[in-house]
Amino acid sequence: MNLAPVLTVLVVAATLALPAATEARGHGAHRHRDGSHAVATRTDIPTARCRDGSDSYSRHRRGTCSHHGGVAVWLR
């Protein structure tokens, strides 16, 4: 039995599911205090740069960069 078509389908399905799984784990997405979700896009302007070098797109200052060593500098 030739498994190449089956393997191709599995690889394509896993590749298409990757962005959704990444957002679900919190990479590139975060939850606001009011429970709503936000996903940073390339057109968003970061509000702060964290001490680990990552950018934050927080709507509020409280808790910004709390899992990234704190805020290094506020950008706006």
Rank of each mutant, 00 (worst) to 15 (best):
M1T: 14
N2G: 12
N2K: 14
L3F: 15
A4H: 10
A4R: 11
A4V: 15
P5V: 01
P5Y: 04
V6F: 11
V6T: 14
V6M: 11
L7D: 00
T8E: 02
T8G: 08
V9Y: 06
L10C: 11
L10T: 00
L10V: 09
L10I: 11
L10H: 02
V12A: 13
V12L: 14
A13E: 05
A13L: 11
A13N: 01
A13Y: 02
A13W: 02
A14Y: 03
A14D: 02
A14V: 03
T15I: 07
T15W: 04
T15K: 01
L16I: 15
A17I: 10
A17W: 14
A17E: 12
A17Y: 12
L18V: 06
P19H: 08
P19I: 04
P19W: 08
P19S: 09
A20M: 09
A20L: 14
A21S: 13
A21E: 14
T22G: 02
T22N: 09
E23N: 09
E23C: 01
A24T: 11
A24W: 10
A24M: 10
R25L: 12
R25V: 11
G26L: 04
H27T: 09
H27Y: 13
G28V: 08
G28K: 06
A29L: 12
A29F: 05
A29C: 13
A29V: 13
H30Y: 15
R31W: 01
R31Y: 02
H32G: 02
H32M: 12
H32F: 03
R33A: 15
D34W: 12
D34N: 15
D34E: 11
D34V: 07
D34S: 13
G35A: 13
G35R: 13
S36M: 07
H37E: 08
H37V: 14
V39F: 12
V39H: 15
A40R: 12
T41K: 13
T41N: 07
R42V: 11
R42Y: 08
R42P: 09
T43R: 13
T43A: 14
D44A: 10
I45E: 14
I45S: 14
I45Y: 08
I45P: 10
P46W: 04
P46G: 07
T47M: 04
T47P: 03
T47Q: 09
A48S: 05
A48N: 00
A48Q: 03
R49E: 10
C50M: 05
R51A: 13
R51F: 05
R51D: 04
D52M: 03
D52L: 05
S54N: 07
S54W: 00
S54F: 00
D55Y: 12
S56V: 01
S56T: 02
Y57L: 00
Y57Q: 01
S58A: 15
S58W: 01
S58H: 03
S58V: 00
R59L: 15
H60Y: 04
H60M: 03
H60R: 11
R61Y: 01
R61A: 04
R62I: 10
R62G: 12
R62V: 11
R62N: 12
R62T: 13
T64Y: 00
C65F: 05
C65S: 03
C65T: 03
S66K: 08
S66I: 01
H67L: 05
G69R: 02
G70E: 04
G70D: 07
V71E: 04
V71T: 06
A72D: 10
A72I: 00
W74E: 04
W74Q: 01
W74N: 05
L75K: 04
R76W: 07
